[in-house]
Write a protein that binds this DNA or RNA. Structure first.
Lengths: 197, 197, 197, 197
DNA sequence: CGCTAAACGAGACGGTACGTCGAGTCTTACT
DNA sequence: AGTAAGACTCGACGTACCGTCTCGTTTAGCG
């Protein structure tokens, strides 16, 4: 059925191989040298594609950066499901922090930087990367509430920003560690809140 | 002692007027157009100083950016002191958010971006801008604990990162508002924590 | 014989309409904007043909330029035949100059320019455009000699180069006019020569 | 006096070495490969100068081409002075032709080509290169007239165009030789004119 | 009062990357 | 097989800033 209806547009079709080579080169450069190394010219050279080809498909650095990141970075934005919502929260945050400690951290910080002078990159990152994580967080929160671990009526935005904001701030400023222990403590603090018992 | 003996080095002394003109121009450009508009060349032109002069005193963009910011931005990193620590917290966070909503937000996001490819800028921002706020936060926390509003043993890093990280993330991604109400709610969430009563 | 038997080669025959559209577009572009406007890409767009099609039939810019010119430019490379050879010479030179003053001049100068980096274009122009004129010139010279107006033994090359070279040089450098009067005078000078009576 | 008044403009003075390197590189490229090889990029690479520097001083290819040519090409636009004006004419035309047969011919044809899409180059070439030759020609004509070899009232423009136009046309089209003998014959034809004795 | 030394303006310089244009080649679907 | 469409590589374009440099000028304190 579908085969009958699909009217391929005329002309030489886009070369998927080239597209992938470009995305891979972009990703590698981002993870190797961050924003500075991530040059359209460098991407072109490494991927073997012509600059023209890159500009045909991506309007600017940011667009390519974010797309290569979203396409190539592992995406376990999925909280585990064990008995304890708090434990799941910690596990997932540890995973995230572990990623941020490594190559991913470099890339994320580069993209965040780039996003500051390119609104499209900003929204693409927010929606393509943060939102899925926020959605997954919502589920674990719901589970926690259902199980009586968390109080009802938790505002997703606030919880998400507190948790992800903490981690990302540490990536950006490197003023505090992202170790497993540090993450656990951070989650604990968030869970317990500030107020006295 | 040293002050009395200070043997002014020979030669023409540094021109304070020029220094200020440069810092002011830098600040203005940052607040007007962010990272993109903030060019050494543009700073030179607007300030009337020669590029050479700028490079004589600042090693790179980041250094100038952060110095102009720290010198010219208003610095009420001081929590008010009313009866309630929570209220003080909210008030101060509102102030901060209000600043971030305006020109300062533009500059902060630019500096954070720049910091990603310049470690010196990163530490300068962390220490010159975030740390004072963190220190002030410590005081209000202490007061809160003393008054019985907050529980004892609150880790400053975690609380600070959660609060400031939330706000800064919203500056960086613009995915959620920085309105007074939003800030209040954010503080409330942090104060109450996630756990069920 | 062959014509009768001509076994049309297999496959779709060449589309004359397309060929003409291409030549016309090429010619127009040449006369409108000269060398700069004459782009294969522009020809393709204006003619509605694909670049591929153009490259199938013409090896390069120059070939298309010269062919469109030779095919579409009016070709009165025929000297008139009145009583006086000198008068005929003037008439014909005036005609040529008149053409060169207008659109044709633009095209000719473009082709001459293009010819400097493409030998094929050079010989094509020399043989396809200049040679016919030279041949016609030979006839009027012969007639002039027969009528006793011109001396015998005139070297065609030299006369032709002097006359056509003068006009073309004025097209190329625009340092002197191509008006009828100027052309007449130019012919007179050539006819009389330099030597004293 | 002048020395006292000359107020050097401020800033780093223009580097003559660089200027010369650029002009020399440009000239070499022109004489080696003509228009095609003459690329701003190639000039930059060969001269060791930055592209920026070239663009700072010359607005386009043509300007650089013509300047390098006028500055570096030998300029014996001076007719010899022997007894016979005709002989002098031949000698000088032979010299010119000899130059055109070699490297200079390549350059001249390239500049003429470039001039077709750049009016400034056109006038620069006409005035800087052709005019001096025309002026020198005027002198030999005057001498010829005074000596009774040439008739009075010879129009410089026409004579010059006929002679130089012939030679340049042969450079552009390569349809006829530029040998000494050919040049002599060309001059003879011009001197004698077409008309019968 | 003149000398020394640094600061300062101006602006040239070698670079790197930008984003664009056109050339000429190719792959595909349609006719 | 011819054609339109359009993706591809490649090379050069002209521009913007970078950070460095070389000037002549200015502004102090010291001898």
């Amino acid at each position: 059925m579908q085969a009958l209806m699909e009217h391929r547009s005329p002309g030489r079709p886009r070369c998927e191989e080239t597209r992938n080579a470009i995305l891979r080169a972009a990703y590698e450069l981002l993870e190797e040298g961050g924003l500075d190394a991530f040059t359209i010219e460098a991407v072109a050279e490494r991927s073997g594609a012509a600059k023209t080809t890159i500009y045909r498909w991506w309007p600017n650095r940011g667009a390519l950066a974010i797309e290569s990141f979203l396409e190539l970075s592992e995406k376990y934005a999925q909280f585990p499901q064990t008995g304890s919502a708090i434990a799941d929260l910690k596990t997932q945050m540890r995973r995230f922090a572990r990623a941020l400690r490594g190559r991913i951290g470099q890339i994320v910080s580069s993209i965040l930087a780039e996003a500051q002078s390119c609104p499209e990159t900003r929204t693409a990152f927010a929606e393509g990367y943060i939102n899925p994580r926020r959605a997954a967080l919502q589920q674990v929160i719901d589970r926690g509430v259902a199980q009586g671990e968390f109080r009802a009526g938790l505002p997703l935005n606030d919880v998400g920003d507190a948790l992800y904001g903490s981690l990302l701030l540490r990536v950006l400023l490197r003023h505090a560690p992202l170790s497993d222990a540090a993450v656990d403590q951070l989650v604990d603090t968030a869970v317990q809140g500030l107020r006295a018992a």
